[in-house]
């Protein structure tokens, strides 16, 4: 688990000169650049993943009535879905995540 600083702990935080700060910042920059390159590499590998053909004809209900998965692309080549925890009434959503059945 990650522990984040508090207002109290930040009262004791190191304060240094501009010159010393720049040395520390450049050290961190090396790691940031590693992350940027790693993220680029992971994004490339994500694009290279093989695909699976969707055979089932999923149907959704939306502002245009009943729509299939193909309809939801609306002319674009890629379609990204975020799947939210808004569950049917009477069903259990994630803890703190369900927003049906009363005030938040």
């Amino acid at each position: 688990m990650i522990t984040y600083p508090t207002s109290e702990s930040l009262e004791l935080h190191a304060v240094v000169s501009n010159e010393q700060w720049l040395i520390a910042r450049k050290e961190l920059l090396k790691k940031e650049k590693e992350l940027t390159r790693l993220r680029d590499e992971i994004s490339a590998r994500r694009r290279e993943l093989p695909w699976v053909r969707v055979k089932k004809n999923h149907v959704f209900e939306g502002p245009n009535g009943r729509e299939t998965l193909a309809d939801l692309f609306e002319g674009a080549a890629s379609c990204s879905f975020s799947i939210s925890c808004l569950v049917p009434a009477g069903k259990r959503g994630c803890d703190g995540c369900s927003f049906l059945g009363g005030p938040p």
């Binding site: 193909a70 379609c79 879905f81």
Partner: peptide, 19 residues
């Protein structure tokens, strides 16, 4: 719970096949 968050990506080719 009965569900957890996630996201999925699909591609539709020129023949309207979905992946």
């Amino acid at each position: 719970c009965e569900e957890l968050p996630g996201f999925s990506v699909f591609y539709k080719n020129a023949s309207s096949e979905i992946f």
